[in-house]
């Protein structure tokens, strides 16, 4: 069944988009991520302009992280204080990201920037995740404990001023790296149309030593608020948020996420991380391939305005 998208200005098959929402939702529920890094490329692939895709996916991620936040909140695994501190940087990062997005779009370099960012970010993060999870699986097969105890190792991050105590996560760290991480995630999210959950979770674990119990719930709070504000900012500055497209994606996404979460519970953590790493890496490779291989169409046209 075809439905005409009012902002993207083209008809799409409603069941195709719903199916994409379900599939990405399944993956996001399984790994506890937003799934923007999969959804944005998929939308571009079915013919929606990258700009509309990035702007609309923001609201889709907001919906899926909202249902995540609620269920983690019930289990009391959300560190609200940490989430709000991350957010202080996150909102600023989102604003800068939306601004850069507007500038790049007018220069005609948005697609290229999105492409390169996907390649660099996804292949780097995917590679690291594969490496880490393969090591963990190997260690396990050798009969050693899966995760080596890091102890209370202090890094330079712990020497920074403005220290704060986050009770629920049981950590005592400087506010500076917290703001910085928030800023980076907000910025990347706005420019690339990803929630950044798959980046934020490892950053919180490795840099701030946030315990695994609170890390996903807290990261989802940040994702929810940055993506909801990215939706508003994209709507105000670029007028490119397609609410009809977003709604179809959301409905598919939140349903898919429920089944994904059930599937994920039956899998071991390292294997889950390995799978996610492979997936992230594959999407990165796909973008690299697209940048290097001569495109079928070297000319492109875009409407700047009406008379």
């Amino acid at each position: 069944m075809q439905i005409y998208l009012p902002i993207a200005d083209l008809p799409v098959d409603i069941f195709l988009v719903l199916g994409m929402g379900l599939a990405v939702g399944f993956i996001s529920g399984m790994f506890g991520i937003g799934g923007g890094f999969l959804m944005t490329p998929l939308l571009i692939f079915i013919g929606i302009s990258p700009a509309v895709a990035v702007a609309s996916v923001a609201s889709h991620i907001a919906a899926s992280s909202c249902s995540g936040v609620i269920s983690y909140w019930r289990r009391r695994t959300v560190d609200l204080a940490l989430g709000l501190m991350l957010l202080a940087g996150g909102i600023l990062g989102t604003a800068v990201g939306v601004w850069l997005f507007t500038v790049l779009r007018s220069l005609g370099q948005l697609d290229l920037t999105i492409g390169i960012s996907y390649v660099v970010l996804l292949s780097a993060v995917g590679g690291l995740m594969i490496n880490e999870s393969v090591r963990a699986i190997l260690r396990q097969q050798q009969g050693k404990p899966a995760t080596p105890r890091r102890g209370g190792a202090h890094t330079w991050i712990h020497g920074l001023p403005l220290k704060m105590r986050f009770k629920r996560s049981k950590i005592y760290v400087s506010a500076i790296p917290v703001w910085l991480i928030g800023f980076i995630i907000g910025f990347i999210g706005a420019v690339m149309g990803i929630g950044g959950g798959f980046l934020l979770v490892p950053m919180l674990i490795y840099f701030l030593r946030v315990p695994t119990a609170t890390v996903i719930g807290t990261s989802m709070v940040l994702t929810l608020i940055t993506m909801a504000s990215a939706t508003v900012m994209h709507a105000v500055t670029n007028h490119l948020v397609d609410a009809v497209l977003a709604l179809i994606l959301m409905v598919g996404g939140v349903i898919g996420a429920q089944f994904g979460a059930r599937a994920g519970q039956n899998m071991r953590g390292e294997r889950l991380r390995l799978l996610l790493g492979l997936l992230v890496f594959a999407v990165g490779l796909r973008f690299a391939f697209q940048l290097v291989v001569q495109p079928e169409e070297i000319y492109s046209i875009r409407m700047l305005g009406a008379e």
Binding site: S59, A62, C66, A228, A235, V236, H239, A243, A257
Partner: peptide, 26 residues
């Protein structure tokens, strides 16, 4: 709405996302 009332439109879409998420969680 998207063209002329960007802010209201954006807020509505964001609210719609939150409601959808909340509905799913319930």
């Amino acid at each position: 709405a998207a063209q002329d009332y960007g802010l209201v439109y954006g807020l509505t879409t964001a609210m719609m996302a939150i409601m959808t998420g909340w509905f799913a969680a319930v």
